[in-house]
Design a protein around this nucleic acid. Sequence first.
DNA 1: CACCGTAACGGCACTGCGTGCCACAAGCAA
DNA 2: TTGCTTGTGGCACGCAGTGCCGTTACGGTG
Lengths: 236, 236
Amino acid sequence: MSDAAGTRRGRSAEGRAEVRRELVAAAAGLFADHGYDETTVDDIATAAGVGRRTFFRYFRGKEDALSPDHELGLARIAEVFAGAHPTEPLLPLVLRAAETVFDLYLDDVEVARSRFRLVRDVPALRDREAASVHHYRRLFTRELTARLAGVPDGELRAAVSAAAIVAAHNQALRRWLADGGRLADVDACRGHFRRVAPMLPLEPDDAGLEDVTRRLERAANALEGRQDGRSERRTG
Amino acid sequence: MSDAAGTRRGRSAEGRAEVRRELVAAAAGLFADHGYDETTVDDIATAAGVGRRTFFRYFRGKEDALSPDHELGLARIAEVFAGAHPTEPLLPLVLRAAETVFDLYLDDVEVARSRFRLVRDVPALRDREAASVHHYRRLFTRELTARLAGVPDGELRAAVSAAAIVAAHNQALRRWLADGGRLADVDACRGHFRRVAPMLPLEPDDAGLEDVTRRLERAANALEGRQDGRSERRTG
DNA sequence: CACCGTAACGGCACTGCGTGCCACAAGCAA
DNA sequence: TTGCTTGTGGCACGCAGTGCCGTTACGGTG
């Protein structure tokens, strides 16, 4: 065991990523096999071939080893917002930012499904997931608040829109993972998600409340329009 | 100290409630004075005049001692939903349920403000609060999903509406607590909260999507109507 | 009054998480 | 070689939370 550690000691960049992957894989395997609470950090570290102390140099705690992409998702969303024009309409911008997170789950579907089951069943992980979702919501709220400055009830509208966006996103993701998580359903999931977006109280500029009326009417029309057709929307 | 414990040993119902209050008060005081992380469970138990083991017989953990009203709030909301007619329109019902939680904070404003500052500053408590909010959201989602059965996109609409309701409620509460938390502002806070409600995608029955159009138009009109008047709404 | 069942409490010990500290090994530069 | 940096492992510590058991007060029963 000091053998494997010795051969890895040198590489600073590649070695760290490799150790991290091994720790994530070990944690996922042990969690799936013996459960979350029954798996100790010592078990994960030993399975990955490193010391217990090293584990905490890669993850803040045992829970972080399960979903290590959380901060990456936050960074990507922030990137989308940072790369957008200040006058860009908010609705497509928010959609683009939210859909960015979908790609993180598409990287390895099997791991995502395994994580989903685990988070659904273990209370401690449910709370952790809730905190994670809270961070996404906070980020959206911050960005929307900054872009809704000057608009009446801007903060309130930003908070509501952010919560609705994140909830719709999670609902779509949850349904996709619970129903099997086949890749063919990703489009349906995304459509499922986009469906709610037009009914959000978002303002592209400091236009005023008259534009909300038009936007809400458009959203209502969109809802009315796809009352029967479900998978036909990709052709329109 | 074995003196006070001895006199309390007898009363089973009154004694438990008293010990619980003492523990909550001790925890609040120690958290405010020395910080959350610097306060151990031993400190709280000692300050309350009980043993450390007893603390864990009253609270699941250190974090629960800060906001012991959480489950009570959930119970009250569930009570509102349970006492409503199945055909009752959802919008006023949801409003009534959400506003029930306001009363919990009005019982002792000073404690609420102290808790607010603490939760805002300590990361561990922020996550705990996020999990708590998540439970509220889940409860609303469950109730709305049951009442939107049969409606197209019922689950999605329930999830979005629940998230929006809870977000609006928290936004109003947060602003109230951050701005000083004077009792005179409670009405403004409640109006602040009610303002978003009409734009939610809620359905009173299995009416269909045509009614959404009307509802959204009404919401837009309501928004347009109060564009300038802010505190005049109590007279109209 | 004496006896016993129950319930709450306190103390003890234990597991496990997370952290601080220190020694050691490998690579790099002078 | 010597010195510096970086990553690592081990050790010890504080603390959260739990299981277990002895103790103590109360209420009922004879």
